[in-house]
Design a protein around this nucleic acid. Structure first.
Length: 1001
RNA sequence: GCCCCGAUGGCGGAAUUGGUAGACGCGCCAGACUCAAAAUCUGGUAUUCGCAAGGAUGUGCAGGUUCGAUUCCUGUUCGGGGCACCA
């Protein structure tokens, strides 16, 4: 014992002496993080002569699971870019904050009683710690949190701007509602079509006669933030509205209660008024084409016609008659098919349905509507093979032929889509065709031979037949002619339709921004309006979210705020009890970073003019249409109203791919699972079907089988599987024991129950497991914490490894295979500067040409790569550079000082350490990025691949400025070329300068 | 179902504008150093035929355009993301 203690001491002493110049990333990283923090190295000023550059990350939602290795992928990329730009002489704004309102915190509050503000605070602290650990150059003095009253004060303020605005199509911009009122007083609304209700018409006289309520209701149809009705998931048992996410397989995720669609009064943003501008200005953005394409598709502009079908006399006469004016208007992109209409389909929610349904059909229609209430929009759109519907018994009148057209309802027509009604042309549309076949509705053929009777002819070529005056015309001609005729008859008009729908802006939740709205006699007013502000002194923002003791929903599906009577009731009236959705705060946060502590404005005009648009925005493409579209709309609205000087928020947009998790499942295992909160034992059989057969597993052992919907046995997930599984996806007996001891699985697991698949090379028994790539998420137990990686290898290795994994925009599973290589590279880099035994190695010898070539090529490559965001190839180049310099035993300051600067954006800690070791006293980030010298990057000859008939056969070297004729002569004279030509005559000689030579015979 | 993306060695990937497919790293194999191990270094490593020289094949699959295709076009399969209240 004593002996080995002495030995240990010797070893330690030896270790300390011999390794004093070792690459000690722990020490280095801790030291420089402290230095950066203490010296405010990353603080950015709004006053600066340098050109500006705004590099932004999508801010995270601080979830309880903490940051996982997938989050930093984009952050590292933007950090590299920000540091690079700073070294290149830009004043770089690179901020970070938190999207802190959201459903999960509230859900957690419901379950545990902890206030969302408390858990959010805690989660943010954790995120901050994890982010700091990676060494980002954020200016934390500019941090924003959407749940901070100082922040959401301005979210509410912007909401009020939208509430007090309308979209003026003549000026093509948002204008204050006050101007609209002035207009109405003068001439009514005859010159400003009403976006919310096309049937709303009034003159000045009528307007002035309107009551306050009527006026406000009319204005509501114009406002950019307005109230309307929308369907939500209503869960009777929980007494609450559920998010789409919380509804799984048609029942509530919590408790498995039934849910149904319910119409509720909601706030909306009239984003549809911006549809055309959002579409048009995409062309000028430096976004990826797929990203723009997704937005275009989401906006979904289509040109066609609106066609009005009248109702048959039977419906509009006699007792219980339907109003003669209430025909059915449809939108169609194919007016040319109007003579092929065999029936009409209304969305089951369509208002008129109950009025027109005949006595005989009432029961059937009612039953069908009940069924549809249980269906999500997604299901209704995607399950196309399943045809459902119901006949109303009523008929419409075809506007051109006067024929009776049966009116059906079906779930495949969505209420919020177009007009909520379609004219069905079975011979030309697949779904209409399937519907007609299914219900035996006779089909009119308007495509002649093209329609076979088997399937619809939906191609957009050919001529229209059997269609009166349209017969023989091409589709384009027929469309025009049909629209002209419909317009003449007063039965239709040309129409541009957008798939884009107004954005629902209400949530029946607690943890979100309260609306700055008070109802006076049931009329909603902004709290900045005189009736509230002057008379009741309630007008100041923010409307703070009150503390609550519990998070139960309010009466009739209202949010929890409805329960707080003191808060709801004010002198002026009742407060709005809904809160704003998650995207409210995130729609404008990039503006707040520019001037985060401003108490009097959301951001000063000076600050927004200086920083202007975000130069580079990096984030996941799951936000391609949601967040990015809303931000664009808010920016345009703020621009229209004169608050900012630009109308697009993000000049350049880059997507980061998702880092997926690796989940492991046992394929051959038998055990039993204790159901959560119950004493019931569920048998979990984990096996391939062959094993089920083979071992005749008693299904009825102690309880139920764990069987999926498809009837297959569900494989058992191994939580945090990556720490237990070997390289051949096997769980060995010892690891299995370790697993069941360490991880609470909720299972009764015992070794006796295990069916061992076989034995490993070492003779150990194992369970065969399978690997699945899934989203990295806490609930899937496949999350990898960056802290663990940083602790083991350091932040610089982690940063470079994430970049080395591949292009940032590609999704890939997380795998630590290969991280060693990157770590080795950094150690090798270090050894160019310092030797573990001999210490500091830098000398002032003059660099050789070879060394200079390596350096300058590297600088050039890094510059090109960073500018095009190809960081994976940068890492490769650094490796090549270090390998070559190592081979040359280069320890020269003239090479290694610029190299330290070049690698600084990627590995800032080691760069800072080396920079200071080289004798500098200020931060490496304040230095200048080295410039490459072309004389070292230019080659003067090229080894050309010579191909015969496109197949590379040999190589020949020529000086770069050699003429084609000279090369041709030399190539044709080469004996190898002659051999490969096999005596055939030369057909063509292709020479691409600097690339290749091809001899065609 | 609709929209968008992807598929290249055992693995992550490279090939930037249609011009030498497999850079760089991991893994694996062999060797050096070492009492030994770790660390480090050197060489090899797409498949296939061949002792070798060398040849043939090869970028999910089937076609097409081209002197030349991982790259462009058409179709198709599989995987991922989004589809409007998760963020």
């Amino acid at each position: 014992m004593g002996f080995s203690f002495v030995l240990l001491q010797i070893v330690i002493v030896e270790f300390l002496f011999l390794n004093f110049m070792e690459y000690d990333f722990k020490k280095i990283e801790a030291e420089w993080k402290k230095y950066w923090n203490d010296n405010h190295v990353y603080k950015v000023s709004n006053e600066n002569d340098k050109p500006k550059c705004y590099v932004l990350d999508m801010f995270p939602y601080p979830s309880g699971a903490g940051l996982h290795v997938g989050h930093p992928l984009g952050y590292i990329a933007s950090d590299i870019y920000a540091r690079y730009k700073r070294l290149k002489g830009f004043n770089v704004l690179h901020p970070m904050g938190f999207d802190a309102f959201g459903l999960p915190a509230e859900q957690y509050a419901i379950e545990t009683g902890q206030h969302p503000a408390v858990t959010t605070e805690k989660n943010i602290a954790r995120y901050r710690e994890q982010l700091d650990n990676i060494g980002f150059c954020y200016d934390w003095s500019r941090e924003v949190r959407t749940s901070d009253p100082k922040y959401y004060k301005w979210t509410q303020w912007i909401f009020l701007q939208l509430f007090h605005s309308w979209y003026d199509h003549k000026a093509d911009k948002a204008q204050p509602v006050s101007e609209l009122i002035a207009l109405f007083e003068k001439e009514g609304n005859q010159n400003v079509a009403c976006p919310g209700d096309e049937t709303l018409h009034f003159d000045a006289l009528k307007w002035n006669d309107f009551s306050e309520k009527e006026k406000r209701e009319a204005l509501m149809q114009y406002r950019l933030a307005y109230q309307g009705y929308a369907q939500v998931w209503w869960c009777e048992a929980l007494g609450t509205v559920l998010a789409n996410d919380e509804v799984v397989n048609g029942v509530s995720e919590r408790g498995g209660h039934p849910v149904e669609r319910k119409n509720m009064r909601q706030w909306f943003l009239r984003i549809t008024e911006y549809a055309e501008r959002l579409l048009a200005s995409l062309d000028n953005l430096d976004w990826t084409e797929p990203m723009k394409e997704m937005q275009r598709n989401w906006i979904g502009k289509s040109v066609g016609a609106e066609v009005r079908f009248g109702l048959t006399p039977a419906l509009s006469e006699g007792e219980g008659a339907v109003d003669q004016n209430s025909g059915i208007t449809v939108f169609t992109t194919r007016p040319d098919t109007v003579f092929g209409v065999d029936f009409m389909v209304l969305a089951p929610e369509y208002e008129l349905v109950d009025d027109i349904t005949t006595e005989e059909q009432k029961e059937a229609i009612s039953q069908y509507k009940t069924y549809v209430k249980s269906r999500s929009e997604r299901e209704r759109m995607s399950e196309v093979k399943q045809v459902t519907g119901c006949f109303t018994g009523a008929y419409a009148r075809h506007p051109l032929t006067n024929k009776n057209i049966p009116i059906w309802i079906s779930e495949y027509v969505l209420a919020g889509y177009g007009t909520g009604a379609i004219m069905a042309v079975p011979s030309g549309d697949d779904r209409d065709h399937a519907f007609a076949k299914h219900f035996g509705i006779p089909i009119t053929n308007i495509f002649g031979d093209k329609y076979t009777g088997e399937e619809a002819y939906s191609a957009k070529t050919g001529t229209i037949e059997n269609s009166e005056f349209l017969s023989g015309m091409s589709i384009a001609e027929a469309s025009e002619a049909a629209i002209d005729e419909l317009v003449d008859d007063g039965a239709g008009r040309r129409k541009v339709n957008y798939k884009l729908r107004d954005a629902g802006f209400s949530r029946q939740r607690y943890w979100g921004e309260p609306f700055p709205i008070i109802y006076v006699d049931d009329i909603p007013y902004g709290i900045d309006e005189p009736i509230i502000h002057n008379e009741h002194k309630l007008g100041s923002l923010p409307v703070e979210l009150p503390m609550v003791a519990y998070y139960k929903p309010g009466p009739e599906g209202q949010g929890p705020l409805a329960n707080i009577e003191d808060w709801v009731e004010t002198d002026a009236g009742e407060r709005e009890t809904n809160t704003m959705p998650g995207y409210a705060g995130s729609s404008w946060y990039f503006l707040r970073y520019m001037d985060p502590h401003n108490d009097t404005e959301f951001a000063s005009r000076k600050a927004t003019d200086y920083w202007n648009q975000v130069d580079v925005y990096i984030g996941g493409n799951e936000h391609a249409v949601g967040h990015l579209l809303y931000s664009r709309m808010w920016t345009k609205a703020l621009y229209d109203l004169g608050h900012i000087g630009f109308d697009e928020p993000f000049k350049k947009m880059l997507n980061q791919g998702m880092i997926q998790g690796q989940s492991y499942f046992m394929n051959s295992f038998m055990g039993s699972e204790l159901l959560p909160g119950e004493n019931e034992v569920k048998v979990v059989m984990i096996s391939s079907d062959e094993n089920l057969e083979k071992f005749k597993i008693p299904f009825d052992l102690n309880g139920k089988m764990h069987v999926s919907a498809s009837g297959n046995v569900v494989p058992l997930r191994i939580k945090y599987g990556h720490t237990y599984i070997d390289t051949k996806n096997r769980l060995t007996k010892s690891k299995f024991l370790e697993y069941i001891n360490a991880v609470p699985t909720g299972l009764i697991l015992s070794v006796e129950n295990v069916y061992w698949k076989g034995q490993t090379e070492n003779g150990e028994e194992y369970i065969q497991c399978s690997l699945e790539i899934e989203k990295m998420s806490k609930s899937k137990y496949n999350v990898v914490n960056p802290d663990d990686i940083v602790a083991q290898y350091g932040a610089d290795t982690f940063r470079m490894y994430e970049m080395f994994l591949g292009p940032i925009d590609v999704s890939k599973p997380w795998d630590t295979k290969g991280i060693e290589g990157v770590h080795r590279f950094l150690k090798k880099l270090w050894r160019l500067y310092a030797d573990e035994q001999k210490g500091w190695l830098i000398n002032d010898d003059a660099p050789t040409n070879d060394e200079l070539r390596i350096l300058h090529k590297t600088i050039k490559k890094i510059e090109e790569d960073v500018e095009r965001f190809a960081f994976n190839t940068s890492v490769s180049q650094f490796m090549i550079c270090v390998n070559e310099l190592t081979a040359l035993s280069c320890h020269k300051r003239g090479i290694l000082e610029p190299l330290a600067l070049t690698i600084c954006p990627f590995a800032p800690h080691i760069a800072e350490e080396l920079w200071h070791q080289l004798g500098h006293t200020t931060s490496v980030i304040s230095a200048n990025f080295p410039k490459y010298d072309e004389q070292y990057t230019r080659e003067n000859s090229k080894v050309y691949p010579v191909a015969i008939n496109g197949r590379t056969r040999l190589e020949m070297e020529f000086p770069l400025d050699t003429q084609k004729a000279t090369i041709e002569q030399a190539v044709m004279a080469d004996e190898n070329v002659v051999k490969w030509m096999e005596g055939k005559p030369l057909k063509k000689f292709i020479f691409v300068e600097g690339k290749m030579i091809n001899v065609v015979v």
